[in-house]
Design a protein around this nucleic acid. Structure first.
Lengths: 240, 240
DNA sequence: TTAAAATTGTGTCCTCGATACACATTACAC
DNA sequence: GTGTAATGTGTATCGAGGACACAATTTTAA
């Protein structure tokens, strides 16, 4: 049987301490119709009748913590190459009405146009970020925390491209940034800033089927896409 | 007994899931002799003979996650008004040789000149950050992650003052920043930047007992000191 | 007492990134 | 072919940050 031996631990009984469940919750962002969306599931707890909650699950006994959100993503959406980032761990005693559960929150960015995206559960659906007032558990706080972290990262790291198709125009990209940041941006200055970051490759192709003058298409420079693995996990493995 | 009811959970037995222990680990920084230090304890695990580890403990069944690091701090140092920040949660299966333990890492900033600071355990001692090569468990990675987060926060948020006495000169402050960031700074530019942030109050007092021209003394503007509570916790309570 | 050494305290120039802002061009719709 | 709506581009300005030099103050040592 498991036996912990550190000084602080040895005097405490097994029963006392192995009664906290560990879960992960995923804030799964996507981008549709010029709006930032999040994937939610109808709560089946009486306490939260009619409310939605984030997608999450308990961490398996033989599962690395950071594998759990990938599994949740895969089970719920069929997607494997997603961008995931750990944000914060929430562990107040009463955060879950059914018992003691601490949860580690991740946000992920998925391309809703991916051919592999498949949502089978009828209780699972996309919701406009701006429209969400309440969620089950402490999930509104988790959502807000993850959105804030996304906003902080988005100008420094080329991660939002996980929300877009392979090819996109600068206008589409700007619309996305505006949806995430919740503010309007000057077109000329935005273009300068983005171009200066050297993230993009000009494809020398044009938009098609748009009801106005078509814009040039770009893609993310190869080597910059981060997905399918937690960056911090990679960094750790390199550091060992 | 505890019964989880979400769809993903109900089919799984209690026994399977309540066997992950939850701990916290604290990277306790202080500043002495112009060096950034961290508080470590001699590991008593055979696997890590001769190595040091961070101070941590399991989270109690009736204890909020965020209370645990405050308790560890208090038990180990006697300090209550400390600055604490959650950094990351580490949960690889094999990170602890004795069993499955996930741990949430916090860093804290303590003033080593505080009259309340009291370290009773002979196995607990301060170590120069720069001298640390290996630690027990995955604690070196945790330390590096926390140091990196400290470095990222330090120019934007007035937190380093938790490492200094009430009154300090700009030279002392600059030495501290250099120790944290691991690089040298131009004195004139540093002073401009710090003064521009409007964090400091000129006390109209001078250093004493220094073997050179004394510098002016400053203190942190009142209202800016953050300690005794996790800032994220405070933000959450405001957000509810 | 005087001179040297060490450290404090201050200002200017330059660069770079970000912002405010206006006009010509292209393609579609009618 | 004319109007409409979007794309595509350049300049002037502002502010933060970095490079950089010299005068003033205090201790220490001769």
């Amino acid at each position: 049987m498991l036996k912990l031996k550190t000084a602080a631990v040895e005097k405490i009984s097994h029963q006392d301490y192995f009664n906290i469940a560990v879960s992960v919750d995923c804030v799964i962002f996507s981008y549709q119709n010029k709006s930032l969306k999040v994937l939610l599931i109808k709560s089946d707890l009486e306490d939260f009748q009619g409310l939605y909650s984030l997608l999450g699950d308990l961490v398996g006994p033989e599962e690395d913590l950071e594998d759990a959100p990938y599994r949740v993503l895969y089970e719920r959406t069929g997607l494997q190459d997603v961008y995931l980032e750990q944000v914060h761990t929430f562990g107040n005693i009463n955060r879950h009405p059914s018992g003691r559960v601490i949860t580690t929150a991740y946000f992920s960015l998925v391309n809703c146009k991916s051919s592999k995206l498949q949502i089978s559960d009828n209780d699972v659906s996309w919701h406009n970020i701006a429209d969400i007032r309440r969620l089950a558990f402490d999930h509104k706080i988790i959502l807000d925390t993850c959105l804030q972290q996304l906003q902080e990262r988005v100008m420094e790291h080329p991660i939002v491209f996980n929300l877009l198709p392979e090819k996109f125009s600068l206008r589409e990209l700007q619309d996305l940034y505006e949806a995430i940041l919740g503010l309007g941006l000057d077109r000329r200055n935005f273009r300068k800033r983005i171009i200066a970051k050297d993230w993009l490759v000009d494809l020398n192709e044009m938009e098609e089927d748009v009801p106005h003058r078509p814009g040039k298409l770009y893609k993310l420079r190869s080597g910059l896409r981060k997905s399918g693995r937690l960056s911090i996990q990679v960094e750790q493995k390199l550091a060992v």
